[in-house]
Design a protein around this nucleic acid. Structure first.
Lengths: 157, 157
DNA sequence: ACGACATACATGTCGTGACATGAAAAGGAG
DNA sequence: CTCCTTTTCATGTCACGACATGTATGTCGT
């Protein structure tokens, strides 16, 4: 098997494994990884239009994350409010329940990141990130992550 | 953003981007990445039972890849034959069309791996693979890849 | 032989992801 | 103001992935 092929499958396997672990942790609060990502983005950068959320979502680079938001609204975590100055837009805000959930998501994520820190002990994470960053630059998902980092830098809330 | 968090999203983004590129390349022959993986495994290691295929599939670590095979059968690429000595089992073999497609898949994959080789030029791929391998070891997807590598070693066809 | 258990596969369900399409609203050129 | 284009969002469709369940078939202890 070519090295590149092995790398491809390892990246796939790593993504699956991370998702699996996060799914287990998040099931305690009844959320999925995709939902938790959206929730955290709204918590950190809201109120947001649906398109703005979509521009920061790594997990869903489709046209827009309308259906993920559907479920968050159904769960009572997010409110859709039609925008005033542009009635095409929808303003997404967290309900009090949603804010509480977002905090719990942050705790769970930190658990996972602690585990990941252990797993990366002894490896050159900088080189790892540099490669992945180069590979994903210009891609939809990579752009989404870049947008998040830019928004964090601008307004570190 | 924590380094571990950035790493998580970069792995997700890399997986998505690789999948996106492969999807584009494979659309020329009417296959999806998941289907192409199954097809290649059957081509390399067939005839296989459904469970054996499942044990080598990185993309689908569910109970069994019954539905992916459904589509390959519907496309006329794979044949399901009931096993003789164990009527629970299904033997999966490629049709002549399937063998042809598998060759084309191999060509397309090599295109992608050439691109990936370019992208990894100048980085320590060994360290990358070592980390990902450690992280995915023991996970369902990582085990599947290990099974493939073991089968390749045993019978390098 | 027989009953309990295990294995192989198929299938129902849910939540993505990615893409295409359609409706509503805003913006811009004449 | 009017037509045309663009933007925003919702929705239909298809193919996963992951999990649970059900059925048929083997296997094993007794």
């Amino acid at each position: 098997m070519r090295t590149a092929e092995q790398l491809r499958y390892l990246i796939l396997a790593a993504q699956r494994e991370g998702n699996r672990q996060l799914t287990v942790l998040l099931s305690a609060i009844g959320l999925t990884p995709a939902q938790s990502e959206a929730l955290r983005i709204i918590a950190d950068h809201g109120p947001l239009a649906l398109r703005e959320l979509g521009d920061m979502l790594v997990c869903d680079t489709g046209t827009n994350p309308s259906r993920i938001v559907d479920r968050l609204v159904a769960a009572g975590l997010v409110e859709r409010t039609s925008s005033e100055h542009d009635r095409r837009q929808v303003k997404l805000t967290l309900t009090p329940t949603g804010q509480d959930k977002a905090l719990r998501v942050a705790e769970i994520e930190n658990q996972l990141y602690d585990l990941l820190d252990d797993a990366t002990a002894g490896t050159d994470v900088g080189a790892l990130i540099a490669f992945l960053d180069g590979f994903t630059r210009q891609s939809p998902a990579g752009t989404a992550l870049a947008n998040r980092l830019a928004a964090e830098k601008k307004q570190p809330d």
